[in-house]
Design a protein around this nucleic acid. Structure first.
Lengths: 179, 179
DNA sequence: ACGTAAAGTGGGGTGGTGCTCCATTTCGAT
DNA sequence: ATCGAAATGGAGCACCACCCCACTTTACGT
């Protein structure tokens, strides 16, 4: 990639990051290009779809979550580590406007997407909790992430404390526990 | 309301219903007005926001769910009735493109909205299941509906069988049941 | 039955969008 | 320094939501 192309790429991602933080996932691509000091055509060549731009913007933030998952992989309490990580994912998704929507509405879990990376990062946490007999064996990491993201999306209207409640509810189940 | 206004109102809702079924919640209002044989200004006067049009379109379908809730209110098995109803809500939301999104992204549970009506309809079902000792006492009807809708939204990409799995997961809980 | 005031209408205008050509500029290997 | 390829951005296209306003239709008091 040529030097100027790289420079423009970075400026677009940076501008998009700000725009999305401010206006959510529906931020105007035109405005992003403008504030990056770049023609709209340039934006569209670097990022053929809104989704691909999303991925680039969120790559860094998703990276944080992945690092966190690796940190927690050797934590003493397997279940605590998993729950803590899921809550962090939820918090990120709720805070970063549009992350949840982007993760959910994007093409489902193709390899190389940030979804795929998140799933891969969470997998060991889930497996450890399952092997410790603390989490049901038939739950997939992808299911968990989908649920957490769906909750974050739903709670963007209702507020973060609602999200907390729902996550707890999902973990413990709606039905009463009868031995 | 004048007779012609009522007529146009109905034609708009009807056209919108078809358009949304075909193109999802992002259907073009302009196109809806056109296919209703009505000027765009008329549509915008009757329905100041996309959301208000959504509500009108879904009112009928939500009505079906409310009727169903009343039917199930006296069913022999309280838990079975609740679960069955929730699954029907999920099925409706998944099938009717945009219902879930409309329910979730709309202004949260103001009185008079279809959310409020759904919650009111589901309330007795939940209460009965709680009183029978089958559902945890601290789950709100609104929480349940939010979850079901969130799942439907998430599963619109993944497919209906994924939605089924997630609903079951939410009911039974992620953690293993330890007496 | 009819005239009129007000409620209702829709075409056209405005400002915005996502996206694509393509003539021009810029880079970097030779 | 040169030259071809890579990269650019502005003009253009079709579409969108939404608003203004001259015109038509309705319902009601007489």
């Amino acid at each position: 990639m040529r030097a100027d192309a790289q420079r423009n790429y970075d400026r677009i991602v940076s501008a998009a990051s700000e725009a999305i933080a401010q206006d959510g996932a529906e931020a105007s691509l035109e405005a992003i290009a403008r504030s990056a000091g770049v023609g709209s055509a340039t934006l569209h060549r670097h990022f053929p779809s809104r989704w691909s731009l999303m991925e680039a913007v969120f790559a860094e933030r998703v990276g944080c979550l992945i690092d966190r998952a690796e940190e927690l992989r050797d934590a003493p309490e397997p279940l605590d580590a998993l729950v803590r990580w899921l809550r962090e994912v939820a918090a990120y998704a709720t805070t970063t406007r549009g992350l949840a929507a982007a993760l959910l509405n994007g093409p489902p879990a193709e390899s190389g997407t940030c979804q795929a990376h998140l799933i891969a990062a969470g997998e060991p946490l889930v497996r450890r909790a399952v092997e410790a007999g603390l989490v049901r064996g038939d739950v997939a990491t992808a299911d968990l992430l989908t649920l957490v993201n769906a909750i974050s999306l739903a709670a963007q209207q209702a507020g973060p404390e609602e999200a907390e409640r729902l996550v707890t509810l999902v973990l413990e189940g709606v039905l009463v526990r009868q031995g």
